[in-house]
Design a protein around this nucleic acid. Structure first.
Lengths: 123, 123, 123, 123
DNA sequence: GTGGTCTAGACCACC
DNA sequence: GTGGTCTAGACCACA
């Protein structure tokens, strides 16, 4: 289910974190779903348990998951999906502001949007 | 002219690099314009000369600038602006692909675009 | 009657322990009152019976309750209330010492006291 | 300057964190002061560099310090002192609410306050 | 069994 | 030199 690239410049714990958030946001992981145990996920990915543990702790601090000692780590139910969506749209806004500063016109933007999303109105 | 934030998680050389590219793309820096000397820019920014040097070397590798021993570092004339624009649109494409994977619909995207660029077609 | 939060960082057995002490100190539980059986309380709270058992054992160690094999667990009569009160005042003393070390002045303390207890002298 | 108790049940990184906060709040450590390097503090305390590193990262996430790769870790200047004071008064408020629920009267509270702070209005 | 903490020692990017 | 990340392996508290 999870995939990491140990060669990547991006830290493993960050790759893993992003994947979990992605699974939350696309609905594969739902509130109160149990994440794999630290040890099992670590061995499955071939990484150190500490690395997985760090990932879970990071996500917990951000409120996306909660952990119960002796039981496991679970998806948080406080509207994690919406938090993620809001974060992503912020990223888009920042990038667009940057593009605008580079004098890239709206039409170029829209062309890219349509390349990715298709020309019609569907998702 | 240049501004860096030493507290930022983003490496200084990267901040500096991005600013130079920004100035190229908005036309403040034009082909064959001379960049400040490594030493002067370093002392002006209060950073290590090695850091400025590294910035120039990175930009030279990517073809945005060229340096001549004993003379200085200059903006390259091989269509640097277009290269930058293409890079930025790639970033946008990547982000949009990510947003799509998160099931964020096209309308939300367009709303953000219009917030940043204004509703009419101008730049 | 009892409530626990499984998501809390505080161990369940500790939450339970504190609640029992609270009920003793406010007089809901009186000397020689019988506590729920380990099994019934565990199933009622949806926790592991071991956890409830541990709670009772901890309280027994501290002298707040006593247990009789085959009969159950009962509130101790050796001035449990006063012991609790003394414990709590110790906590307050420790916290105040900490606040003093942080250079927080007496007036700020008194203001908080009055916010919680009301400005007049009643309880 | 720093002291830890490796025997304590409280995690080392937390002890260290609290001490640093204490030094900030009493003014021994001021904004932009440099903390000891991860390695030097670790060897001085006889703990693992990772443990110190974790402490610094925790404090950074909470905004009390900022770190610059290759340079060191520094006290943040965004009103860290006031943040700490506010935190501490919150703790006091919580404890007092608890005491009130235990039917401990205001006079007992005030007696403790005066024991710690002295009967007169100074400090 | 679970997650949380820690040590020992390593490599990396940055300055 | 600095902080950031990771591995290997250990012990603890909790359920």
């Amino acid at each position: 289910m999870f995939m990491i690239d140990v060669q990547s410049k991006q830290p493993i714990f960050e790759q893993l974190s992003e994947q979990i958030l992605k699974f939350i946001s696309i609905g594969v992981l739902k509130p109160n779903d149990k994440l794999p145990s630290v040890r099992s996920l670590a061995s499955q990915l071939g990484v150190n348990p500490n690395t997985v543990s760090k990932t879970y702790q990071e996500l917990e601090k951000k409120g996306y998951v909660y952990s119960e000692k002796g039981k496991g780590c679970f998806i948080s139910n406080n509207e994690a999906e919406k938090m993620i969506e809001s974060d992503k749209l912020d990223q888009l806004s920042n990038l667009l502001t940057d593009l605008k500063m580079h004098h890239i016109d709206k039409d170029s933007i829209l062309k890219v949007v349509e390349t990715v999303y298709g020309k019609d109105g569907n998702v």
